[in-house]
Amino acid sequence: MALPFRRVPSPEVAAAPRIDFEALSDGELMQLLVHGDDRALMPIIDRYGGRVRTYLGHVTRDGSWADDLTQEVFVRVFESASTFDPRFAFQVWVFRIARNLAVDLLRRQSTQRKLRDTLEERAAESERQSIRSRAASSPLQGLVEVEFAEHFERALKRLPEIFRTVFVLREVEGLAYEEIAEVVDASPKTVSTRLHRARLQLRKLLSPYLDPFREGHLPSSSSSEGEASEEQES
């Protein structure tokens, strides 16, 4: 193996091309972080900051906690860059960090039940406000979507954390079953089961918004959106 260069450019001819950070892959940005170039942090935050905040908002059900945890997620990305395993997709790693932090938080909260009631009331109002403000600036400003957003939060709140996580990672963040499985440390089959149950519970809770006379169509019987690999749940 030879060096990717034969001679190290001398400082006088060090007219390095300006680095286009936006064009770098997540893995390349992480390598730069590992090697001390903290300019790589900004594009990573641009790519994942909003997604992580969205996920944490849904899962913690508390806008202010979600903000704090989002910051902590990226602090850990920064501090633990050298432990990032490039065999995994970066989004799996970052959602895994986020989920672990969220679970820790919820566990701590559950040990403080009295406080939790107060916190949750504050949380729910905070997140509702956050949703209203986000919905107001959303390109989808249809009344149904705005109403749905609020009811969705209330319904989601009634699901166990693992159902919330699996549903949000799949439907909101668009992760594949296999990626979700890595995030939550479960098999894709378990993810499939939990996702289905989460959907059924949400369907029940949100039935007015899921009126069957609205648009809906069957996929073609021969279509294949994903990898058809599963048959029957256990």
Partner: peptide, 19 residues
Amino acid sequence: RSLQRLSTLARALPRADVP
């Protein structure tokens, strides 16, 4: 269809901005 609708609406939920 209700599951399909749930999925469609969930995907259209407003996203948080980067804090």
